[in-house]
């Protein structure tokens, strides 16, 4: 059964979902629960798709262009949008998903509701490699001072600001980098499925991407991975039990989700990675440090 799961489709779709989950996670880590990820996924997929299909670009530079478009799109949306909080912000990001979807439907150049076909080039190896590289970068982040700045901004925004942390910068940066990740996921996904259309990037998709993180846990980089893998593969596992069960898999899946949110609302993996432990044994003699400081 497990062997059946290890095919190209599942590797690509799971990998893409992990990258999307990390995008949501980056944004959420800085205090923004976003339902705009499908929009950025669409922008990435369409920008890169037009470049590869209509202009014959290779996949790598097209992917970079798609990510850049999403990053700047994230900045443009982020600066005005991140002034609001909580429910309002969710509504704003939901609005972004709707607008981008409707916007693409009305651009004849990219096929309107018909979408674009002919995207190709993504291989399971590229997706797996991307997951490892992005994961590595996130791992570095989670042990860097920036992680603490993010955590502080999320835990107590005004105290963090009074310590000299530019909250707007931190939140917009987190949102825009998250958007770029979603864009990259869109590029990979689009160039694997060959055909993309606006209906692939609706609000339901955005909600799913947010659920990866809500289910898995928001406090460390592994929670989103867990959520993305489970949500992607559970339907596939369910399929193994025959079509009778498959009809109920959505019901089963959302049932589990409701139970989980009731009893473990912080997500399955909710531990916070300690960014740095004190080197108490290797501590330099403090007196010498004090003397240095007194001089300056």
């Amino acid at each position: 059964m497990i062997a059946n799961l290890l095919n190209g489709d599942n590797v690509v779709f799971t990998g893409v979902n992990i990258i999307l989950a990390w995008g949501v996670y980056l944004s959420l880590m800085t205090g923004t629960l976003t339902f705009a990820m499908a929009a950025f996924m669409a922008i990435g997929a369409y920008v890169a798709g037009v470049l590869t299909v209509n202009f014959g670009w290779p996949l790598a530079p097209a992917a970079l262009a798609g990510m850049a478009a999403c990053f700047f799109g994230g900045l443009m949306v982020g600066f005005p949008a991140l002034r609001v909080r909580g429910l309002l912000l969710m509504l704003v990001t939901t609005g972004v998903t709707f607008s981008v979807q409707v916007g693409i439907e009305n651009i004849e150049y990219v096929g309107g509701v018909q979408g674009i076909r002919g995207l190709s080039g993504t291989t399971p190896a590229i997706v797996a490699g991307s997951v490892f590289v992005i994961g590595g970068l996130l791992w570095i982040l989670s042990h860097s001072p920036l992680q603490r700045i993010f955590d502080a901004a999320r835990e107590d925004e005004s105290v963090a600001a009074s310590l000299g942390i530019n909250i707007v910068f931190v939140r917009v940066a987190g949102f825009a980098v998250g958007a770029a990740l979603a864009g990259y996921a869109g590029v990979l996904w689009g160039h694997y499925v060959f055909f993309i259309a606006p209906q692939n990037f609706g609000i339901l998709e955005s909600v799913f991407f947010a659920l990866f993180v809500v289910l898995g846990g928001v406090n460390n980089m592994w929670g989103p991975v867990f959520g993305a893998v489970i949500i992607t593969l559970v339907p596939e596992i369910a399929r193994e039990f025959g079509s009778g069960f498959a009809e109920y898999r959505q019901l089963f899946f959302f049932g589990v989700l409701v139970v989980l949110l009731l009893f473990r609302s912080q997500g399955v993996l909710s531990f916070r990675t300690i960014s740095l432990k004190a080197p108490i044994k290797g501590l330099r003699p403090v007196t010498s440090v004090s003397e240095e400081r007194a001089d300056d």
Binding site: I140, L141, H143, S144, P145, L146, R148, I149, D151, A152, E155, D156, V159, A160, L163, G164, I165, N166, F169, V170, A173, N219, R272, I274, S275, L276, K277, A278
Partner: peptide
Amino acid sequence: FNRMTALENVLTAIKQHTTHPILAALAF
């Protein structure tokens, strides 16, 4: 910041990191 350790609380506020958050990320 109750979810952080005591050391992390102080490290969060270190001036060179709060004023240059991007450099803070690069200082692996």
